[in-house]
């Protein structure tokens, strides 16, 4: 295949303990580290490996987000993507809008494979890849833990509730990736320098002909209900007797 497109999302870094603002209008983002959604980073790594194996010629990293998302796209370029495209959009993007934007980019660029994370760790929606596959009327393989190229098809091992499911999909298609697919490479300093010279184009939804349709409104944000701390038992006997008393064992 010629082109692989990797969709990445700028999210609060997974090491940050996310807190809801006291006024319930969102989560605290001031001074908080932002990163590439970890699942998307795995998708990018897989794309780079496919290119290195000679299965693809070019890897394009794309994102929908505010102007600052250029930082994450530069990181993607430093990891090894050949070029990047930002669809600038200041409001938090819903999965339907993201899928429509990526669909427009797929058509424009002629990508044959789209790789992205199975979910973003901010909205935990798990929708964008499947939506894109539907708009494209092409196959999807979600939650991939193994991807093999077999001629013009992919053999994808997916993590499902029953265990592992293997599907074969014809290209072009969409694969969303799970954690165990690979371990992304570290970015080296010379690569960061090189990445500064790689092309990063900026466009927007209007230029791509994507109309905004956002029928869901967030009314408020709450911290999750807290469990109260229970009691510490001193030994196994006290534990088993407490559980027996409660009729749990």
């Amino acid at each position: 295949m010629q082109k692989i497109m990797v969709c990445i999302k700028r999210v609060i870094d997974y090491n940050v303990r996310v807190r809801v603002k006291p006024d319930g209008t969102g989560v605290v983002t001031e001074g908080v580290k932002m990163s590439i959604n970890p699942f998307d980073e795995i998708a990018l790594e897989e794309a780079l490996r496919l290119r290195e194996q000679g299965a693809a010629a070019e890897v394009i990293a794309v994102s929908l987000g505010p102007d600052d998302t250029q930082q994450q796209l530069r990181t993607a370029l430093a990891m090894g993507a050949d070029r990047a495209i930002l669809v600038r959009h200041d409001a938090p993007a819903d999965p339907a809008t993201a899928a429509a934007a990526f669909m427009a980019l797929v058509r424009k660029e002629g990508a044959e494979l789209v790789l992205l994370g199975k979910q973003a760790i901010d909205d935990d929606a798990c929708q964008t890849g499947q939506r894109l596959a539907a708009l494209w009327d092409r196959p999807q393989a979600s939650a991939a833990s193994r991807v093999e190229v077999v001629g013009e098809s992919l053999r994808v091992t997916r993590e499902v509730d029953a265990g592992l499911e293997v599907n074969e999909i014809d290209l072009p298609g969409v694969v969303t990736v799970d954690l165990r697919l690979n371990e992304p490479r570290y970015v080296k300093l010379p690569d960061i320098m090189k990445a500064k010279k790689k092309p990063l184009d900026v466009t927007d939804l209007a230029a791509l002909g994507v109309a905004l349709d956002e029928p869901v409104t967030v009314l408020k944000w709450d911290p999750p209900p807290q469990r109260t701390k229970g009691i510490m038992v001193k030994d196994a006997a006290e534990l088993v007797s407490a559980l027996k008393q409660k009729g749990l064992v």
């Binding site: 996310v18 809801v20 901010d122 935990d124 999750p224």
Partner: peptide, 29 residues
């Protein structure tokens, strides 16, 4: 639109769902 991981129904148009790995809960309409 899709609402993922619906955890509570407040009305036929209003729902609650967790985000950020359950570190926050949003009420959506």
């Amino acid at each position: 639109p899709q609402l993922s991981e619906v955890m509570a129904v407040e009305s036929p148009r209003r729902f609650r769902r967790p985000v950020y790995a359950g570190n926050a809960v949003v009420t959506v309409e």
